[in-house]
């Protein structure tokens, strides 16, 4: 299983790279006029925050590299393979449903979201599928006819 140490080291590396990228983007901000007397350009605050975030990321990285943990010694990101599979499949379902709604339409997404979520979680009881579909129908009805939102 993926340990907290490995995952956190990858994460802080990603954060540091992202901080570098966003700080570089901030250099390109075209400021229409500097603040009257303080001379603070628009890039000042984001770059200040990015520096702080990067420093914290370095500290977290050092903690994991040298001490081996940050109060989570021996812990793993997921308890077991099945939990990891369910969580990540659910993530795929959420992203897929967003794109299905945007590209195909609400109705297709609404019909798929419940059953796809249950499949991702490894649920096989037909009753669950029925209940989830009913809830989806009720929510859609409330929003469409109760709140008059044009979903379909």
């Amino acid at each position: 299983m993926l340990t907290q140490r490995t995952a956190n080291l990858i994460f802080v590396l990603f954060i540091m790279l992202a901080c570098g990228y966003f700080a570089w983007v901030a250099e390109g901000f075209i400021t229409s006029g500097l603040l009257a007397s303080s001379g603070l350009p628009s890039k000042f605050f984001p770059q200040l925050l990015l520096s702080l975030t990067a420093i914290c990321a370095v500290i977290v990285g050092v903690l994991y590299l040298h001490r081996g943990d940050a109060g989570d010694a021996g812990e793993t990101v997921f308890e077991n393979g099945a939990e990891a599979r369910r969580g990540l499949l659910m993530l795929v379902v959420a992203i897929a449903c967003y794109f299905i709604w945007r590209e195909i339409g609400f109705l297709t997404m609404a019909i798929l979201i419940g059953p796809a979520s249950l499949l991702a979680m490894g649920i096989s009881k037909p009753m669950m599928y029925f209940v989830v579909l009913m809830i989806t129908a009720v929510v859609t009805t409330v929003f469409t006819y109760g709140l008059r939102i044009q979903l379909i």
């Binding site: 954060i15 901000f29 229409s32 890039k43 984001p46 925050l49 990321a57």
Partner: peptide, 27 residues
Amino acid sequence: SKGLLMGGLGIFLTTWGLDELNGTERY
């Protein structure tokens, strides 16, 4: 340090959009 990292990240994300003080486009 993890808490500060999250705080910094949260504040940084609010810098996206037009600068309220001088209208500069940011991210």
